[in-house]
Design a protein around this nucleic acid. Structure first.
Lengths: 164, 164
DNA sequence: ACCAAATATTTGACTCAGTCCAGAGTTCAT
DNA sequence: ATGAACTCTGGACTGAGTCAAATATTTGGT
């Protein structure tokens, strides 16, 4: 985690933003709960400063993203997540089973660690990489489930139903 | 584009699916409108077969994704998109301005073209890569807009307001 | 310290994408 | 042709996020 200013207000002011309890608490929440969704952050902020509107959190988050103090990740099939590791070009690994998300450091050098040959004349500013797979505990759960199914239906019947 | 069976029904049957006009039309729509959203596909299918429920299209799409006949891409900030290029491990380039999406062939060999060192014990099955940037026409539009702003306000005032 | 202007926050309604459900309609193997 | 299994429809519903107007707070100059 990047060195956290004890004085979050300082950080806000440096970026031309007014300092409010809501914003400070939101920044701290992002910092202490990496990969949290907006809703989780709202809960966390409420636990700290008592109450805040959903709107204020969304607004703060989008301002922070705009100022590049926070990165927003939006994996398929789940709400957006936020983290405060910015500028170090790392990637993400997500479990298809439980949706847990892990950081993966990029081993290929500086950003963007991938270069597209055919850039269609674009000015590319980011290469976003997401690895999809199954985490160890979901793998174990899958294995257990399959074993259970085998036990329940010992003889493989010839029914060619579509598997769901 | 992959060779399209004239007989889409064949393709469906091969994968253990029943053949219906709705499904055939949906497959054709995906094939002829790469990167379309579900809503666009619904419109297209309706134009071809007259009417279909949103549900049927969503259902068909998810079945096709499950059978690996169609790939689903869900970029941040927009609805899911579908394409029929599967199995050839290409990536995507999206414009931050107009959200247009382009295919980029992977130049690094076979899938997964990226390997994560630290895999946290995962069984990784896919590396999804999205390049973000600005397309040539949006770059031009930006330049024009900036020029206009400069003209309107010749002297750079010292106001350090937060830009929105 | 105080005031006015600028900026934030709240509240509540609203949009958009997608899902769930139960009943009616089709498809396919026999 | 028939029936069981599968698919489609229509409508209600959910969750994530956005919009806009009114209210409250912060800030900079005096």
């Amino acid at each position: 985690m990047i060195v956290m200013h004890e004085d979050v207000g300082q950080l806000l002011r440096e970026h031309g933003l007014q300092v409010t309890a809501q914003r400070s608490a939101t920044i701290r929440a992002v910092s202490s709960h990496p990969h949290a969704t907006a809703d989780e952050l709202i809960d966390d902020v409420r636990a700290v400063i008592g109450s805040i509107s959903r709107q204020a959190v969304y607004d703060t988050l989008s301002v922070l993203v705009e100022k590049n103090l926070v990165r927003r990740i939006q994996p398929a099939g789940s709400a957006a997540r936020y983290e405060d590791r910015v500028g170090d070009n790392h990637h993400h690994l997500i479990c298809r089973g439980c949706s847990k998300m892990f950081d993966i450091d990029c081993t290929l050098g500086a950003a963007p660690c991938l270069v597209a040959d055919e850039d269609h004349g674009f000015e590319i500013d980011e290469a976003e990489v997401i690895f999809w797979g199954r985490c160890p505990s979901c793998l174990k759960a899958d294995a257990a489930e399959n074993a259970a199914k085998e036990a329940a239906r010992p003889g493989p019947s010839g029914t060619s139903r579509r598997g769901r």
